[in-house]
């Protein structure tokens, strides 16, 4: 690891001022599970690291107007085990429980995970189908961004220089919605997904009302499977309709060949796991 200067601000304003002052030369660090590995591999060459660990008020789960508010410094493990998260959005607790191992989930923060923007991470597809958004804070103020718009490219988020992700907000799901998160893990239990799919649906009188589908590990960013959704919304739910809709995901994904499989294999698995996810939220009684 190269030498760098470490800052340990104790207020958010102080942290934002440090990010403004050092610009591209500074990187925030929270849990460190991603950042320390990037530093070790010289993939991050920042001269300044802004440690967020001592910032107050950014950890914990609360509810306002039916929405869950999760502080950016909350650990993955806290989201997984939070009774409030389990009661409000069990899909979210499930997605966070699938990340790596207990040890990593004790360390990795919600904000750090999302801004790392690794397309194979577990939480983003679920957050996308839950219509979650994040709060970004800079010295100029705050703005909200849907999680669907947070990811720009491999390991690249939409955060501007000087911005910190400070909160994750998850609205109430539609009444009667069914949800599922499927993670294809052909190698080891603690691995990143080879392909992952999250889905949320409501069905009334056999007609698909709400349908949201998102995939991870199938391209440069997690994606909403809009073609799949368009094929089902307002339609009669039948096994044939589900099968045809799942096939439409093949043209939406752009996977990389790597040690988890070839691009063709992952495209096939995206179809298979999308179909299984749709069957669970649309056809299972």
């Amino acid at each position: 690891m190269r030498d760098f200067i470490y800052h340990a601000p104790t207020t958010i304003d102080e942290a934002l001022a440090l990010l403004d002052e050092h610009g591209e030369d500074a990187r925030p660090i929270a849990g460190g599970t991603a950042m320390v590995n990037l530093l070790k591999q010289n993939m991050v060459l920042a001269d300044h690291l802004v440690g967020l660990g001592k910032l107050p008020g950014l950890r914990g789960v609360s509810q306002t107007n039916g929405s869950l508010h999760i502080g950016a410094l909350s650990r993955h493990r806290e989201v997984e085990l939070s009774p409030e998260v389990l009661a409000h959005s069990p899909l979210l607790a499930e997605a966070y429980s699938k990340v790596a191992t207990v040890r990593v989930r004790n360390m990795a923060t919600v904000g750090g995970g999302l801004t790392h923007a690794d397309p194979a991470q577990d939480p983003p597809p679920s957050l996308m189908v839950l219509d979650a958004h994040v709060v970004l804070t800079s010295s100029k103020g705050t703005r909200e961004l849907p999680v669907s718009d947070l990811f720009v490219d491999y390991y690249e988020s939409a955060l501007e220089p000087g911005e910190l992700l400070t909160e994750l907000v998850v609205p109430q799901s539609p009444k009667g919605a069914k949800t599922v998160y499927l993670k294809f893990l052909p190698r080891t239990e603690d691995d990143y997904a080879t392909v992952s799919v999250a889905a949320l649906a409501t069905v009334e009188n056999g007609i698909c009302q709400d349908i949201r589908v998102a995939l991870g590990a199938v391209g440069p960013t997690p994606i909403r499977a809009t073609a799949v959704e368009a094929a089902l919304k307002g339609q009669q739910v039948t096994p044939d309709a589900v099968r045809a809709a799942a096939d439409a995901v093949a043209d939406q994904v752009d996977p990389l060949t790597d040690f988890r499989g070839s691009d063709d294999y992952k495209r096939d698995m995206a179809v298979v796991f999308t179909r299984r996810a749709l069957e669970q939220v649309l056809l299972a009684s």
Binding site: Y6, I29, G32, T33, V36, N37, K40, L49, G51, V102, R103, V104, N106, M107
Partner: peptide, 8 residues
């Protein structure tokens, strides 16, 4: 439990 190798 935490990994001391990726904790500064």
């Amino acid at each position: 439990i935490a990994a001391s190798c990726i904790t500064l």
